[in-house]
Nucleic acid binder design. Structure first.
Lengths: 258, 258
DNA sequence: CGTCTGGTTGATACGACTCAAATTTGGTGG
DNA sequence: CCACCAAATTTGAGTCGTATCAACCAGACG
């Protein structure tokens, strides 16, 4: 279906994904950008399917995803797993977590992951005297929890078909704001098992439902590449309203594509 | 089943519910308490089933629930409604919301509601020079989003029986930390319809499932009064792990009851 | 070339939904 | 205090979406 020779053409923006993300909310000065780079110079790599943070850990760093995908998940006593969030480049894991004594969930790498480890002191240094950055980080937190609420809606009210469609649209739009998606296409490293854990479905049912989405001409998904063929139709089919992403910055450049 | 003469004996604590809640995290000085009271003097009442905040509104105040119950909800184009959070006394609605342009959800009163309307300036005045309060508010936000994550798990992985059990335990424990519950008993103004919207079930199924919980001797629920007969068994039955409420303050007084 | 992970298919079972109606409860006014 | 009404709860019968279980297949990798 998709042309297999076209592989991952979306790393063209050399720009920092964090800066891109925060600029969805506000313009940053070059000093702001430099300060962000400065705070995130302590970098660590995590191999795919390994944990970055484990439930019960005492939080010591704020993590910032520089490259790759990760997920936040919780495991129940009976072994079931729920992915509660997905992190893409530019996402902070938990600004201010270090206030808590213990992590109540784990964070795992989906792909090979490049993350910045930021100490509380570095976070303070970053925000001190930079109200724009401080506000942008606040905005980031608010959007993160708005996404969490939308996931609650997704699981509570939408059918399997709508749930998957909604998740695909969300991830596509989030990747787009950090320059990792365009023209309906993006990398998509989640397995059907991951999708199942994120949507509260079984992998078997995810498989059949993805086939339906393909059959309806809404998506192509092959070899870890997602192609949304008709974003508007997919949005409608999944009752997607992007207001919860809060991308409506005043004076924001409106992209013609969508 | 329950003795109908025992009605709502849980308003015995005259203490401010906010202070109680924040003290689950840290000790407050009398100045801290006074400042909180000062910031929350602008009070408004909302009648049951009326909206306090509507989707699309520009946020202007931080709201603080002083008395009564409320819920955050989202409505889908097809008319379905998902309750994504429940607010009980002592809960802030959205610290820092005013950063966003528009609300992406509504907040509705379940009972008659007494809320404080706090301006951004008053919030600043409250936190300025009061690191303990600032930290406590941060903690409040972190716990609120941890609860949101747990709801995602609840909807994604738990059966109807577990979901309802989990929700009842959570609300009981939250009420207990603000002195509105004890001995397994608390006010419980949610209708079965509300429970359905919160758990992603239908009201009919909620009804049948509550009957199961009663039949198993786990709860009594009548006339807006909940009585959890055996908290430990109910926790087990619903795979409840309270770590996400982050009530593990160092040196915290341990209540013998549970 | 064998192994492994991820994806696909088929048959069957069950939890939760739907629709429809009856019953109980709580509030209101006469 | 009772009659009435609307809201909330309860019950029953039938259906459907998604889970379960069990194979099988394809490509990636060492």
């Amino acid at each position: 279906m998709t042309d297999p020779t076209v592989v991952s053409a979306f790393h063209f923006k050399s720009e920092s994904p964090v800066a891109s993300k925060l600029e969805a909310f506000t313009r940053l000065s070059s000093d702001d950008r430099a300060a962000i780079a400065q705070a995130s110079r302590n970098v660590r790599f995590v191999e795919p399917r390994r944990d970055l943070v484990s439930e019960g850990d005492r939080p010591r760093f704020v993590h910032l995803v520089l490259d790759g995908w990760a997920c936040r998940y919780k495991t129940l006593p009976d072994g079931k797993r729920q992915i509660v969030s997905i992190f893409v480049p530019g996402d902070f894991c938990d600004i201010n977590v270090y206030i808590l004594k213990h992590m109540d969930h784990s964070i795992g790498a989906i792909t090979r992951l490049k993350v910045a480890m930021i100490t509380p002191e570095e976070m303070n240094g970053l925000t001190e005297g930079r109200p724009r950055v401080t506000q942008a980080l606040w905005w980031h937190e608010l959007v993160t929890t708005a996404i969490q609420r939308e996931w609650t809606v997704n699981l509570g009210q939408r059918s399997a078909y709508e749930r998957l469609g909604h998740l695909l649209v969300e991830l596509y739009l989030r990747l787009k704001t950090v320059g990792r998606a365009a023209d309906g296409r993006c990398d998509f490293p989640l397995t059907q098992n991951d999708l199942a854990d994120a949507t509260g479905l079984t992998a078997v049912h995810v498989n059949r439902t993805l086939q339906e989405l393909r059959r309806d001409g809404l998506i192509e998904l092959e070899r870890k590449q997602l192609h949304i063929l008709d974003l508007e139709r997919l949005k409608d089919a999944s009752m997607f309203n992007s207001n919860y992403l809060h991308l409506d910055r005043e004076g924001r450049h409106l992209d013609a594509n969508d």
